[in-house]
Simulated scan of single mutants.
Amino acid sequence: MNRIKEVLEQKGIKQTWLAEKLGKSYNMVNAYAQNRQQPRLETLMEIANILDVDIKDLIISNKEIN
C-alpha cells in the first residue's frame, strides 16, 4: 500500500503532472495512486525524488495496517 495520492493532494500536485515527470501514462500513475497497482521500488524512489519527500512518506507501514 502506498500514500502517493495523499502526498500529491498535500502538495497540490496533479497526477497528470507526475505522469509527465515520470514518463509514464496517466493511467499508470492513477493505478499507483488508487493502490490498484504498486510501483517498483525504483519507480517509488523516482516519485519520492520528484515530489521531494522521503521514500518512507510514500509507504504505509505494515504495522499500521494490522
Rank of each mutant, 00 (worst) to 15 (best):
Q10V: 09
I13A: 00
K11T: 08
E6S: 11
Q15W: 01
E6W: 06
D54K: 10
V7D: 09
Y32M: 05
Q10D: 13
L18P: 09
A33E: 04
Y32I: 00
E42Y: 08
M28K: 06
L18K: 09
T43Y: 00
Y32E: 03
Q10I: 12
Q34D: 00
N49Y: 10
Y32A: 04
P39E: 14
E9D: 15
G23M: 11
K24Y: 05
M28T: 15
G23F: 11
A19I: 01
L8M: 11
N30E: 02
I50E: 07
T16I: 14
G12D: 07
K5Q: 05
Q15P: 01
Y26Q: 14
Q38L: 07
Q10H: 05
R40L: 10
V7P: 09
K5R: 08
M45F: 11
T43G: 03
L18Q: 08
G12R: 10
T16W: 04
M28Q: 15
T16A: 14
K11P: 06
A19Q: 01
Q38T: 04
R40A: 13
M28A: 11
A48Y: 07
E46R: 14
Q15I: 06
Q15E: 15
T16R: 13
I50P: 02
L8V: 12
N49C: 07
W17G: 02
D54Q: 06
Q34E: 03
V29A: 04
K21E: 06
M28L: 11
E6A: 14
K14R: 15
V53A: 04
L8C: 09
Q15M: 12
K21L: 02
Q37S: 12
A48W: 09
V53M: 04
V29Y: 02
T16E: 15
P39N: 10
Q10C: 03
D52E: 15
P39Q: 13
E20K: 05
A19K: 02
L22Q: 06
E9C: 07
R40P: 04
L51W: 02
I47A: 03
M45I: 11
I55T: 13
A31Q: 00
W17E: 12
M28G: 00
K5S: 08
Q38V: 02
R40Q: 13
Y32W: 05
K11I: 13
E9R: 14
W17P: 01
A19E: 03
L18F: 09
W17Y: 14
I55N: 10
G12V: 09
M45P: 01
K11V: 10
R40H: 12
R36H: 11
L44H: 09
L22G: 05
I4P: 06
R3S: 02
N30D: 07
D54A: 01
M28D: 01
R3Q: 12
E6I: 14
Q38Y: 05
N27Q: 15
D54Y: 02
A48F: 11
Q10A: 11
Q34I: 03
N49S: 13
E9I: 11
T16M: 05
K11C: 10
I4Q: 08
I13D: 00
G12C: 04
N27R: 05
N30K: 07
L8E: 12
K14W: 08
Y26P: 12
E20A: 12
P39Y: 12
N35Y: 03
M28N: 08
V7A: 10
A33T: 10
K5P: 00
Q34A: 08
N49W: 03
Q15G: 13
L41T: 15
V7M: 06
A48T: 06
V53C: 08
A33Q: 04
V29C: 00
I47R: 01
T16V: 14
